[in-house]
Design a protein around this nucleic acid. Structure first.
Lengths: 366, 366
DNA sequence: CACTTTTGTGCAAGCGCTTGCGATCCCCAA
DNA sequence: TTGGGGATCGCAAGCGCTTGCACAAAAGTG
């Protein structure tokens, strides 16, 4: 061996950077270098799989590493290289199955890509969003996945300005020029409308999602388009605002059922909201689907558990999460790739909550 | 100002560490120092809220920071200080509501503690566990939350040896001397048994969880204890192995119903398994609860959605996650605190899936 | 066989931040 | 006026790793 045997700290009692004693007692590349009789940079190259390393050298180093139980110190590597091998997932919350579905897809895909992921939830606080974006994009993660259902915030613009790689999930055209993954909301809703119309429904209520998110508008567009295609005129009172959540679904349904001429079917913009619809129907003494049909959106697991099981537009959440990760990986490899919109297909799943429209006015139970 | 005005790089054209030009274009503490006319260490102290900073200095620095839009570079800070302000959550998967409940509790609590968290799933691969533990504990995170339902693996021992702070969730006494959070499984199961016995059930089937996890044995203990307390003798054939999941719950129920003298009630070790029980009962033409009562464990959201809604032992998953985080925070503040077991209460939630035992043999439907 | 290329390795200089150790400054008792 | 002792702040030395550059040795090239 060319190097000083065993000592390796060239007589000055310290490694080049003054690494007299490792803080944690854990071995560093210097220790590995000493044991294997090469320089620390060679060790680094072996660790990172660089070319131009003699096979025997590589073997010696690897043997020293496993002998010492060497594990790279991630922060140091990140600091030196500027890459962290971590992607961030910024979400508003984790409460709903909707988010969880996406998170699962992300998790799965990330793990196959030799990346880790950091889950950050803003808990609906706007300041936190900005703070996270700033901190994460500044060295903590290499790329960002963003699911924030509130229009396109300024900090997304900031990310773009900083040429930081990110992809938005379930944001539609609010983000021109951004990489986006979303579902075919409109098409799915149209399919739902066709289904209801085919069952003879003419008055169909619509409970929207949160208003500032793109998918809400897509679904509303699908509703209108679907009805118009069937030659049914739109009635403004049949569209009531919602927020994707159960309580509001319940309320909204009450409003719809209180109409002079109540709907015979209701489309809810999420499964959760539809569960609220079911509850309101039960409270009003209406049977589903005999008196009232309900169609939902998402197809989270609960949709098939409830009674009656929900007819719903399936949105492949896992696939969306997975696609977003794949796209992000592409971006990390080629940061200047042109933006891309990925639209995953939706599919109407017919279960028990829809049926033929009742002959006369259905709201008068009894 | 005592310092060189504006220059700050002492004429050598570079900062002390040779920071000629920031890599990312983002401002560093050196930039802040230059603008505010103090040394970089003072900036660092302001950032970290150290005492002994003159109020006016602090103000000047803060103003410079917001003027420049300074954001700390986390890896550098971690490298220098040895602390990352992130905690890791190591779980086997994210598929079940059980995990998700805990994750939500963790998320919530972590966010109130000025920490971030990194979610790592091992996807059931043992090598990944060890790799994660090594990497995470080596600088990536300050502490670790572990939910790995498979006995107490060696790497937990390694963590302890390295004096790394961690807390186990839902591991029971397999981990002597470790900080653990778990639910009162035994007590909850006993309550469930008392409920069934009170309804007149004498032959009660039991579908276990995965065998190598502590809570499985606790629940089994509760089953046996509960029956014995009621003076009911144990029948080995009534206990069938399960794995907490729906398909196995279905299978196991088939086995139980095929017995010469089938049970009038079944306890499933998780809600998911109980849903399988329900399916098997339906398949066998049995009505729940008229012909067969079922009690479950967990009380995830699905439990109240299914038909009939499940009578189940509620396990406060969020609270468990939250408690684990709180405990971890304590450990981070005081690493040598003696280990502690935290047991959160369980509670029997009676819904629709349990009822009086049928008069005669119930398996003969019709 | 002198002369580029390619391959293999080492050195030094950082990455952006924290922190121990002084050096100053200021205030007040003596 | 002196000292002593905080309160403030600066400097240097690192944290553990990556990487451009230099240089040596091996391998082509005409």
């Amino acid at each position: 061996m060319a190097q000083a045997t065993g000592g390796g700290t060239d007589g000055r009692g310290r490694t080049p950077t003054g690494n007299v004693r490792a803080r944690s007692g854990r071995p560093t590349i210097f220790d590995v270098a000493r044991v294997s009789g090469v320089s620390y940079s060679t060790v680094s190259r072996v660790v990172n799989g660089h070319p131009h390393i003699r096979e025997e050298t590589r073997r010696r180093v690897q043997q020293a590493m496993s002998q010492l139980g060497y594990v790279a110190y991630v922060s140091a590597r990140t600091l030196a290289s500027g890459r962290s091998q971590v992607v961030g997932l910024l979400a508003q919350e984790l409460e709903t199955s909707f988010f969880m579905g996406i998170v699962r897809g992300v998790d799965q895909q990330v793990s196959t890509a030799e990346y880790d992921f950091m889950l950050c939830t803003t808990h609906d606080r706007r300041e936190k969003e900005a703070a996270y974006v700033a901190r994460l994009s500044h060295g903590m993660v290499d790329g960002l996945l963003i699911i924030l259902p509130r229009g396109l915030p300024d900090h997304v613009e900031a990310l773009r300005a900083a040429r930081f790689s990110f992809v938005l999930i379930d944001h539609d055209d609010e983000a021109p020029g951004c990489n986006v993954v979303n579902a075919a909301d409109r098409r799915g809703t149209v399919a739902a409308m066709k289904h209801l119309v085919g069952l003879g429904h003419r008055r169909i209520g619509f409970i929207t999602g949160t208003l500032h998110v793109g998918s809400t508008h897509e679904r509303l567009g699908g509703y209108r388009g679907g009805l118009m295609a069937a030659g049914i005129s739109l009635a403004a009172e049949l569209v009531v605002p919602g927020d994707f959540l159960e309580p509001r679904g319940f309320e909204a349904t009450r409003e719809l059922l209180a109409l002079a001429e109540p709907p015979t079917a209701i489309f809810a913009s999420s499964d959760a909201a539809a569960i609220g619809v079911l509850r309101a129907a039960r409270e009003a003494g209406l049977r589903v689907p005999e008196d009232l049909s309900v169609v939902a959106f998402d197809d989270v697991p609960e949709a098939s558990y409830v009674d009656p099981a929900l007819t719903t537009v399936r949105q492949p959440l896992r696939e969306m999460g997975g696609s977003a990760v794949r796209r992000l990986m592409e971006l990390l490899a080629e940061p200047d790739a042109p933006a891309q919109r990925i639209v995953v297909a939706t599919e109407l799943v017919v279960r028990e909550s829809t049926g033929p429209a009742p002959a006369s006015t259905p709201a008068q139970h009894g």
